[in-house]
Design a binder for these strands. Structure first.
Length: 227
DNA sequence: TACCAGGAGAAAA
DNA sequence: TTTTCTCATGGT
């Protein structure tokens, strides 16, 4: 990944959408919960699930661990895949407790923490990196479906590269910078959603350019908005 | 009614 | 080793 291109795209997105101040989550624990619940799911539905957890007093490590998988599944139902996600969330909470709590995790180096998170059943690369970047403020770039689609349409990647290949590419191109990664990912999500308000990322109109999402057209549009 | 969304893991080929 | 299938609600 060319550092100049990565910076250029960032500057255009930032000019168009402004500062993101992104990840919706008030506590480190809430961010970790959100990272699991948002798997293949729109954030609006994750918020409903988090509201349910909070309303029932379960939005804490011990609160979740006090619930059965069935009870937890019922609370997180709006986020979809609730049976699967209930097990994954419990796995993550058991892991946090086994490791001695959030602070003990925070004390660990990223090189040790990332593989440990990936050992948890239900925590894959994207979920682990969401947690590392947003909950533990580590310089780890998150590669999600939006990132693949936007940068492949920009012609900067093919889109089917392995996760690690892309993560390393972005990180080497941008240099280690937590605030930049945080903001960049937020901008990518904003752009993906706002570029086509009717149906985010729909191939039909986006590929035809009807929503202004396609590459050169979109970039020039961003440039104009940024002026 | 049909389609899709900010993944991950297990099963099948 | 790679590909396919499964999990599920809610909005358009």
């Amino acid at each position: 990944m060319e550092p100049e291109s990565l910076r250029r795209v960032y500057e255009l997105l930032h000019a168009a959408y402004g500062p993101q101040q992104w990840w919706p989550g008030d506590t480190r624990f809430e961010i970790m919960v959100g990272a699991v619940l948002t798997q293949n799911t729109a954030w609006i539905n994750v918020e409903r699930a988090i509201v349910n957890l909070e309303a029932s007093g379960a939005l804490s490590l011990e609160g979740v661990l006090a619930l059965s998988a069935e009870a937890l599944a019922e609370l997180i139902r709006p986020a979809g895949y609730f049976n699967v996600k209930a097990r994954r969330l419990l796995n993550l909470c058991h892991f946090i407790r086994q490791q001695g709590g959030e602070q003990r995790l925070a004390d660990r180096q990223t090189d040790a923490l990332r593989p440990a998170l990936l050992e948890v059943n239900g925590v894959g690369p994207e979920t682990a990196d969401d947690i590392l970047l947003y909950a533990f403020e580590r310089p780890v770039f998150v590669i999600d479906a939006y990132t693949r689609r936007i940068f492949s349409r920009l012609g900067m990647i093919s889109g089917d590269e392995p996760y690690e290949h892309l993560r390393q590419g972005f990180q080497q191109g941008l240099g280690p910078d937590v605030a930049l990664y945080n903001e960049y990912h937020g901008l990518i999500v904003s752009h993906a959603k706002q570029a086509c308000a009717k149906r985010p990322l729909c191939d039909d109109c986006c590929l035809r350019g009807e929503c202004g999402f396609t590459t050169s057209h979109r970039i020039s549009s961003l440039q104009n908005r940024g002026k």
